[in-house]
């Protein structure tokens, strides 16, 4: 445990960094939505894109709950593979999302960030959940 103990706080902090950017996006999503609409758009079109982005953000929050539950319950806290994967994914997600906010990327790019940086570690986390609680194995 001595050698991987640095992974635990760094994983937690990258997770929280990503979480903070996602919550900030809830406040500042207008410009991103306008970026993926034509110059003249109707309120209905805006509403549609807005709903999609909000759904994506809520899904992200749900996946955060999965990953934080796995982390805090100890399922994957000392699993260095999952920790490294999660650190890489969430670190790139926070960088990509800061660009998303600052450079006003199109709202459809969020889905790519979501798939690679949020869904992927959550899927491996779920696999670990199944391995630990379902198959009673310790995949360390």
């Amino acid at each position: 445990m001595g050698r991987i103990s640095g992974l635990v706080p760094s994983r937690f902090l990258t997770l929280l960094a990503h979480l903070v950017v996602v919550i900030t996006l809830f406040w500042s999503r207008e410009s991103n939505i306008q970026a993926c609409l034509p110059l003249k758009f109707t309120p209905e079109e805006y509403e549609k894109q807005d709903n999609q982005l909000v759904a994506a953000l809520c899904l992200t929050l749900g996946l955060f709950a999965v990953e934080l539950a796995g982390f805090l319950s100890g399922v994957s806290m000392f699993n260095s593979t999952q920790s490294l994967l999660s650190i890489a994914a969430h670190c790139s997600a926070s960088v990509a999302l800061s660009f998303f906010v600052f450079e006003r990327w199109e709202c459809t790019t969020y889905w790519y960030i979501f798939t690679f940086c949020s869904a992927f570690p959550a899927v491996t986390e779920t696999a670990l959940f199944i391995a630990v609680f379902g198959l009673k194995k310790k995949p360390f």
Binding site: V8, P9, F12, L13, L16, L72, M77
Partner: peptide
């Protein structure tokens, strides 16, 4: 144990904060 985990993470989080 949960309390200890929370203290540990809170310390790191506070340093960053």
């Amino acid at each position: 144990t949960p309390l200890e985990v929370l203290f540990f993470l809170n310390g790191w989080y506070y340093a960053t904060y």
